[in-house]
Computed example of a mutant assay.
Amino acid sequence: MTPLPQNLIIRSLTAEAFAPFGDVIEARPETMRLINGGTTERFHALATPDVVGDGARVIINIFRGQPRSFPYEIGMMERHPLGSQSFSPLNGRPYLVAVSPDESGKPGKPQAFLARGDQGVNYHRNTWHHPLIAVGEVSDFLIVDRDGPGHNLEEFFFDAPFTILEPSL
């Protein structure tokens, strides 16, 4: 018997709710410092890239995500054992984040978060997550990622997908 798909509840992205999976990158008042003679607000140390392995380096990319159609099925998750990965929207558009707790080396039931257009995420190294989920229109993201030798991608495919209904923007 094939398991039936399960609907996921979309939650607002907050630092507290997302903490088991990584960091929320946003301009929080407690991280602000004035620099450049008081003309610039610096929101300091919002996330720390984490890469391991000989020859590894931190790189910066732009990903251009195509919008997903809803309802959208989450049929797989991926993780990067050798480096963290951050996504920060460049177009100011909201997007969806789907993550799973690790359950003995496999992803558990996913959790879905609606990220505002001024919030980024930094997935901790080895965190199960779904690839980029752009909403509404083509969206660009600044990605801080690992480059270098070694196998830095694991994928897992669920027996039955999880469904995300249309997010309320």
Results as ranks from 00 to 15, higher is better:
residue 131 P to K: 01
residue 79 R to V: 10
residue 55 G to A: 11
residue 66 Q to C: 05
residue 43 F to A: 01
residue 123 Y to T: 07
residue 97 V to T: 11
residue 88 S to T: 15
residue 45 A to W: 08
residue 130 H to P: 08
residue 95 Y to N: 02
residue 92 G to D: 10
residue 44 H to W: 07
residue 16 E to N: 11
residue 135 V to H: 02
residue 52 V to T: 12
residue 103 E to L: 15
residue 40 T to V: 12
residue 7 N to E: 13
residue 150 G to L: 08
residue 102 D to T: 08
residue 28 R to T: 15
residue 10 I to K: 05
residue 105 G to M: 11
residue 21 F to K: 08
residue 111 Q to R: 13
residue 49 P to V: 01
residue 120 G to H: 06
residue 149 P to F: 09
residue 47 A to N: 14
residue 163 T to H: 01
residue 102 D to C: 09
residue 19 A to F: 08
residue 38 G to Y: 02
residue 135 V to G: 01
residue 110 P to K: 00
residue 6 Q to S: 12
residue 160 A to K: 14
residue 160 A to E: 09
residue 26 E to C: 13
residue 147 D to C: 12
residue 121 V to L: 09
residue 140 D to F: 01
residue 63 F to S: 02
residue 161 P to F: 06
residue 49 P to W: 00
residue 9 I to C: 11
residue 52 V to M: 04
residue 97 V to M: 10
residue 95 Y to E: 03
residue 22 G to T: 08
residue 39 T to A: 12
residue 59 I to W: 01
residue 62 I to K: 09
residue 65 G to C: 02
residue 47 A to M: 14
residue 165 L to R: 14
residue 13 L to D: 05
residue 142 L to M: 15
residue 4 L to W: 04
residue 107 P to K: 04
residue 137 E to T: 14
residue 111 Q to K: 13
residue 123 Y to E: 05
residue 63 F to Q: 01
residue 153 L to E: 05
residue 65 G to A: 08
residue 98 A to C: 11
residue 40 T to N: 05
residue 119 Q to E: 12
residue 34 L to D: 04
residue 125 R to W: 01
residue 36 N to A: 13
residue 140 D to W: 00
residue 17 A to T: 09
residue 106 K to N: 14
residue 82 L to D: 02
residue 138 V to G: 11
residue 124 H to E: 08
residue 65 G to V: 00
residue 116 R to D: 15
residue 66 Q to F: 09
residue 50 D to C: 04
residue 160 A to V: 06
residue 90 L to F: 07
residue 38 G to L: 02
residue 158 F to P: 02
residue 163 T to F: 00
residue 140 D to S: 09
residue 162 F to A: 06
residue 64 R to F: 04
residue 59 I to Q: 12
residue 98 A to F: 03
residue 47 A to E: 10
residue 95 Y to A: 05
residue 118 D to E: 14
residue 141 F to M: 03
residue 115 A to Y: 09
residue 50 D to W: 03
residue 53 G to T: 06
residue 84 S to Y: 03
residue 48 T to R: 14
residue 38 G to E: 03
residue 140 D to C: 02
residue 61 N to E: 15
residue 77 M to I: 09
residue 45 A to C: 10
residue 154 E to W: 05
residue 68 R to C: 07
residue 160 A to H: 15
residue 112 A to P: 01
residue 164 I to Y: 02
residue 169 L to W: 13
residue 165 L to D: 15
residue 91 N to R: 13
residue 20 P to W: 11
residue 114 L to V: 08
residue 12 S to W: 07
residue 136 G to D: 14
residue 166 E to C: 07
residue 27 A to W: 05
residue 122 N to H: 10
residue 153 L to R: 02
residue 142 L to S: 09
residue 24 V to K: 04
residue 10 I to D: 05
residue 147 D to E: 15
residue 82 L to K: 07
residue 14 T to Q: 04
residue 111 Q to D: 08
residue 169 L to Y: 13
residue 51 V to Q: 10
residue 91 N to V: 04
residue 122 N to V: 07
residue 102 D to R: 06
residue 97 V to R: 07
residue 110 P to S: 03
residue 132 L to H: 00
residue 69 S to A: 13
residue 58 V to P: 11
residue 26 E to Y: 11
residue 85 Q to I: 00
residue 7 N to A: 15
